[in-house]
Structures are given as structure tokens and as C-alpha cells.
Computed example of a mutant assay.
Amino acid sequence: MPTLYVDADACPVKQEAARVAERHGLVIVYVSNGGLRPSRDPMVRHVVVPGTADAADDWIVENAEAGDVAITADVPLAARLVEREVHVLGPTGRAFTPASIGMDVAMRNLKQDLREAGEIKGYNAGFTARDRSDFLQALDRTVRRAMKESKD
């Protein structure tokens, strides 16, 4: 069975991910620098990493295996996970895939350069109910695919 990893710092869909994991009987692992309420559910694990840069990312990459599912908005982390054949979704339900990750990284770097040059502001669009719905549908599809692949 695949494991569901959540890059939990500032993740807006933690509860939705938990519902999907519970529905499919998956272990869910929240990885953060702290501040999450522990759960008594044995299928929910919390990993608290040091507050250093990329500590949560590094922990997820070291522990996720091919066929697992991960949720992150962090494009460099997504690239590292896609390389390890992990199914990766952003919090809006957008999949990071081997076919798309090169462009995702390039766009992220371009936007960072433009923000640093003052050409664009660093504001992200607000998270909407539609984003939440799209995420739930995409996560359910992805988990089903990962579970099917793990049986093959």
C-alpha cells in the first residue's frame, strides 16, 4: 500500500488529505517544523523536523518510495519526488509529472527571478473552494492509481 506524505507547513488541504487517506485505509504522514496537533489515529503520523531550510523536504525525499503519494506546493521538492517515481500533487490538485516537471521548475525559477528584480509582486492567488474541490478529486484519482499500481 502506498503512503501519503504531506509537506504540512502552510498546507491548506491537510484535512482533505486525511479524509482521502482514511477512506482508502492509507497511512498519512504530516512532515513539518512543528505546530501541528497530534492525532490518536494510528494511521496518522506526525514527523517534526528541525527548523532548518529544507529539513522537511529532505525527510520526505529520504522516506518516500516509488508509488507513494505526496502533497506539496514546493516545486523543487516536487521535482525531487517525481525523480523518485512518487505521485505528486499540489494543493490545487495539479499533478507534477515527469512530463511537466521541467517546465514547472523553469517557470518557478523565472518567477523568482522576476520577483527579485521587482518586475512582479510575490502574491499568490487566493485558495478557493474550487481549488479544494479540484484537489479532492485529483487526490482520490491519484490514490486509486497508486493503489492499483502497487497491486500489479
Score class of each variant (00 low, 15 high):
Asp7Phe: 04
Phe96Lys: 00
Gly90Asn: 13
Gly118Glu: 05
Gly34Glu: 10
Gly67Met: 03
Val6Tyr: 09
Glu16Leu: 07
Ser32Cys: 15
Val29Met: 05
Gly25Ser: 07
Asn124Tyr: 09
Asp41His: 14
Ala125Asp: 05
Gly90Thr: 13
Asp9Ile: 10
Val48Ser: 10
Gly35Pro: 11
Tyr123Met: 09
Arg80Val: 01
Arg145Val: 14
Met43Ser: 14
Val20Met: 07
Ala106Asp: 07
Arg37Ala: 14
Asp152Thr: 09
Leu89Gln: 07
Arg132Pro: 02
Arg37His: 13
Asn33His: 13
Tyr30Ile: 13
Asp9Trp: 06
Ala138Met: 02
Asp68His: 14
Glu65Phe: 02
Val82Gly: 01
Leu136Ala: 09
Met107Cys: 09
Ala79Cys: 10
Lys121Arg: 13
Ala66Lys: 10
Thr97Trp: 02
Ala53Val: 14
Gln112Pro: 04
Ala53Asp: 12
His87Phe: 09
Gln15His: 06
Cys11Ile: 14
Ala56Trp: 07
Ala95Gln: 09
Glu83Tyr: 05
Thr142Met: 10
Lys151Phe: 07
Val31Gln: 01
Ser100Thr: 15
Lys151Gln: 15
Ser150Phe: 15
Asp9Leu: 04
Ala18Met: 07
Ala17Leu: 03
Gln15Phe: 02
Ser32Ile: 07
Arg141Pro: 03
Ala18Ser: 09
Ala73Gly: 00
Thr128Gln: 02
Val31Ala: 00
Pro76Val: 03
Asp54Tyr: 05
Arg80Ile: 00
Ala99Gly: 08
Met103Asn: 11
Arg130Ile: 04
Gln137Pro: 09
Ile60Asn: 04
Ile120Asp: 04
Arg141Glu: 08
Lys148Asn: 10
Val61Gly: 03
Ala70Trp: 12
Lys111Phe: 14
Asp140Val: 13
Gly34Trp: 12
Ala78Met: 05
Leu114Arg: 11
Gly126Pro: 11
Glu22Leu: 06
Arg132Gly: 08
Pro98Asp: 01
Gly102Leu: 14
Gln15Pro: 02
Asp68Thr: 10
Val143Gln: 10
Ala73Leu: 03
Ser133Asn: 00
Pro42Gly: 08
Gly34Phe: 00
Gly126Thr: 06
Asp68Trp: 13
Arg145Pro: 07
Ile71His: 03
Thr72Val: 06
Leu114Thr: 07
Leu26Ile: 12
Ile120Arg: 02
Thr72Asn: 11
Cys11Arg: 08
Leu114Ser: 03
Asn109Gln: 13
Ala79Lys: 09
Lys14Cys: 12
Gly35Ile: 08
Ser39Phe: 13
Glu149Ala: 15
Ala95Glu: 14
Arg94Cys: 07
Leu89Ile: 10
Pro38Cys: 05
Val61Arg: 09
Lys151Met: 13
Glu22Gly: 06
Val13Asp: 02
Val29Phe: 06
Arg94Gln: 12
Ala79Gly: 13
Ala106Phe: 12
Pro91Cys: 06
Leu89Tyr: 10
Asn124His: 15
Asn109Pro: 07
Ala78Ser: 11
Met103Gln: 13
Val31Pro: 04
Thr97Arg: 03
Ala117Phe: 08
Asp41Gln: 05
Met147Glu: 11
Pro50His: 03
